[in-house]
Design a protein around this nucleic acid. Structure first.
Lengths: 339, 339
DNA sequence: AATATTTACGCAAACGATGTAGTAATATTA
DNA sequence: TAATATTACTACATCGTTTGCGTAAATATT
């Protein structure tokens, strides 16, 4: 029942503990015959090294943490998929922590991780993470962080993102080409990097087309779905409503669909919609939803690969590096002018 | 930079290591004044115990593992959400492992976990997990397992499920009431418990209505989406197609929607569809999708709660217990007769 | 005042694996 | 043949915490 350890193995084999340990790690100090004997017995007795003992001794946890706002989210769950794949390939374990967009929870989690429980952290920060001292403090402890998607520019390390600015331009351009004259941008807080970039693209493209960027057309949504619903409803109620909506994240597009359904607003006739999304059912929606789709799986995969590139070399310091993957534009019914 | 440990704390406080350790754990052996002094200094120096050292000493990892087929799946991601919540409340960490429906991967993961890396495992087995010796072997090592959703009946422990049999009956009944005469069941392998129960409900209700259960109407799908697409396409091609489809899992319903779109089959006019699903956008699909929705978050939450109930008492043996939560039927357009 | 008890702390042995330093025995070389 | 190198192993300290036991001083009991 109890797990077998080196001591027991050594006694049975009539060898010393260190010999057995070295034999299992294929050390040159041990003769081939002995190695085979040890390996066979170890397999027979189903020996696996105690991770706490070796972790303590070697100061390696063989574990990385993934810190994300949500998991019940198509983007993040795909990213986790990619991360887990690479971690398994590297014989690493993956701890998962959810912040639920709560900056205090994020701080608490980082505090919990400071004591060498993990060899590295892959993270996407909270929409409220403006101050990042808890992250730089964390780095000071000698544990590397790699950011993906929601990055923290002020922290020096590798950052995996998508071409949010270009995508913001393209999405806006597409709406304009489909005859939108008054485009609203549904944002998710101002703090985070991706919002700023997506919004910049939106503003830049409006500017390029000599369209006015009205402040009231930038709707700052948050983590409260009910409140978001009200905000979008306000936006779409009454005469003076926009004829195009660029939702910066998937859930805001879904909210918009729900509002339109309630208010009996026809998409795309009255208002056209496009959004960042990894929704599998985008093409099955009514109407099918135009999306900018991020390579979520690859983002996670890449983030993990970069992390292991440094962990393998026992480097705890990761220099600044920006890896940008491309999103793809999927034009569907929700954003197209009816001809 | 390097994390502070007990030895350093003790030296600074001019106390022995054991006194510091006991003070931090609020032992009665230590005087109040000393305790305060230690606590203050520990906080000041940002001390946190090394998890490997205490894990090794106490034989406790403060970690549970979640083993599931997928994470990019609305059901499992919600369940993980619930699990993570309870784990955080109990000051536990959550390791995540994905089997991708691969029984060999499942075996490998369990082997990895045998060495006391975790205090307990919450799992939903692979669709191919028929033989469960790797699970009973695992239990023998003294680490408790709690199953949720995809349970393993042969293993004695707590199991959290939903009322799949009743739901199977209700879904089938609903299709029959909406005039379906020839209902197909899209299954995901025969091995797993939930499939058997859902199918039993389906068969039972057919029987009750004196409807023939044709073997060719039970389509055994798998993990390969492309192949599933072909299977569903075959089912729906030609004259002799069913007029109702009961998809046992969400992704098969989505596949069915896609096939119907390609073949220009009208839902619900030509074929009615209902499925088990936690899809957030079910009501926004075209047509909106009728679902049996499982309380995924609560299932995860309950599984974790049961686990901690035993872990708190240092019990590694969890007796058989079946906790059944109720799913809810959401009737939408895809399954209703047009009047 | 003598003894018993409590309080408050330190010592040292674990937990299991790892790696350095040491030691016989054998092999190689001058 | 003696000196040196190599091989194949063992002993032991170490990682950072925890915890049973020991003990001196303070307090309580008779």
């Amino acid at each position: 029942m109890a797990a077998v350890n080196l001591k027991q193995l050594a006694k049975i084999l009539n060898l010393s503990i260190s010999t057995v340990s070295k034999a299992l790690r294929d050390s040159h100090e041990i003769g081939d015959a002995t190695k085979e004997r040890v390996l066979a017995k170890a397999k027979e007795m189903d020996y696996t090294p105690n991770p706490f003992a070796s972790g303590l001794r070697r100061n390696k946890s063989k574990t990385i943490a993934v810190v994300v706002p949500e998991v019940a989210n198509n983007y993040f769950s795909l990213a986790i998929n990619g991360i887990e794949r690479i971690a398994q390939e590297n014989d690493y374990h993956v701890l998962i922590y959810l912040t639920h967009e709560d900056i205090e929870k994020e701080k608490g989690i980082m505090k919990h991780l400071e004591n060498k429980r993990v060899d590295g952290v892959l993270m996407s920060v909270t929409m409220n993470t403006s101050n990042q001292t808890h992250l730089s403090d964390f780095q000071q402890k000698g544990i590397p962080i790699v950011f993906f998607d929601r990055i923290c520019n002020e922290i020096e390390t590798a950052k995996i993102t998508t071409d949010d600015y270009i995508s913001g331009i393209n999405a806006t351009k597409h709406l304009i080409e489909n005859n939108c004259k008054d485009i609203a941008f549904l944002s998710l807080g101002d703090e985070i990097s991706i919002m700023q970039k997506r919004k910049s693209g939106y503003l830049e493209e409006l500017h390029k087309n000599n369209m006015e960027a009205k402040p009231e057309r930038i709707v700052k949504c948050g983590n409260d779905d009910e409140m978001n619903y009200q905000l979008v409803k306000e936006l779409l109620t009454g005469k003076n409503k926009p004829d195009g909506i660029f939702a910066s994240v998937e859930k805001l597009a879904i909210t918009t669909y729900q509002v339109c359904r309630e208010l009996n607003i026809n998409i795309p006739e009255e208002v056209k919609i496009i959004c960042f999304s990894n929704l599998e059912t985008a093409s099955l929606l009514s109407p099918s939803l135009s999306t900018i789709t991020q390579p979520a799986y690859n983002i996670g995969k890449t983030a993990a690969e970069v992390m292991f590139k440094y962990l393998d070399k026992n480097k705890t310091y990761i220099p600044n590096e920006n890896i940008v993957l491309q999103s793809t534009l999927h034009i569907r019914e929700s954003s197209q002018q009816i001809v």
